[in-house]
């Protein structure tokens, strides 16, 4: 049980895909112009990641090692197609904003990284814990980026005005803002991580 908790929390902070490992960042930069986009993208990726980790973990003794990557990609592509069609049918406005980045979950490095690096070697329960942790770690990271960009760029938080009459920094909604916010947040996370390492040394 402690192992499962460890696997779950690993993705939330220690190996957080966005802030610590810095992979799968294309979607984290592209769709994060408003808070709800971040949440939706995070949940979509968590779904694909969890389902494909379950399937890869169950099939790990059947898939021949030589063709494992194509097999993983087909598994991931199947679940991505499901999310893509689901979002197109039930959330058309959100789907319009996310555009091509929903189908691009297939080539999101995080999913293949966990399938190849974890689910293909671990038991079902551990793979689920790991996938959920990684997925939610991705989700909170990109929601944070979206909130920062939305508050600075359009003065709202989930559509509610929070900045009063203050000037909006439109640049935050444009591509350069995404890179700048991302860089500064990664820097802050590095600082926090370094501090917590120092503290554990003192004890």
């Amino acid at each position: 049980m402690t192992q499962l908790i460890k696997d779950f929390t690993n993705g939330l902070w220690n190996e957080n895909p966005i802030f610590r490992a810095v992979i799968g960042i294309c979607s984290a930069l592209a769709v994060t112009t408003a808070g709800q986009n971040g949440i939706a993208m995070g949940l979509a990726l968590t779904f694909v990641l969890t389902c494909s980790s379950i399937l890869v973990s169950l099939l790990r003794s059947i898939i021949p090692p030589k063709v494992r990557i194509p097999c993983y990609i087909i598994v991931i592509a199947t679940f991505t197609t499901m999310v893509d069609l689901f979002m197109k049918a039930y959330f058309p406005p959100l789907y319009q904003v996310m555009g091509i980045f929903i189908p691009l979950i297939v080539v999101n490095c995080i999913v293949l990284w966990r399938a190849e690096g974890f689910a293909s070697k671990a038991s079902l329960a551990r793979s689920i814990a790991d996938a959920l942790g990684m997925g939610l770690g991705y989700a909170w990271a990109i929601t944070l980026i979206s909130i920062v960009r939305e508050v600075l760029g359009s003065g709202t938080l989930f559509g509610i005005n929070v900045m009063g009459q203050a000037t909006h920094w439109v640049i935050m909604l444009l591509p350069p803002g995404a890179f700048l916010v991302m860089g500064i947040l990664v820097g802050i996370m590095n600082m926090i991580a370094r501090k917590s390492v120092k503290n554990t040394h003192c004890h």
Partner: peptide, 19 residues
Amino acid sequence: PDALKGPAIVFITAGLLAM
């Protein structure tokens, strides 16, 4: 700066290039 070493400074540079 120490905290910005690695990917962080690359993102900020990319932000300026994007501008």
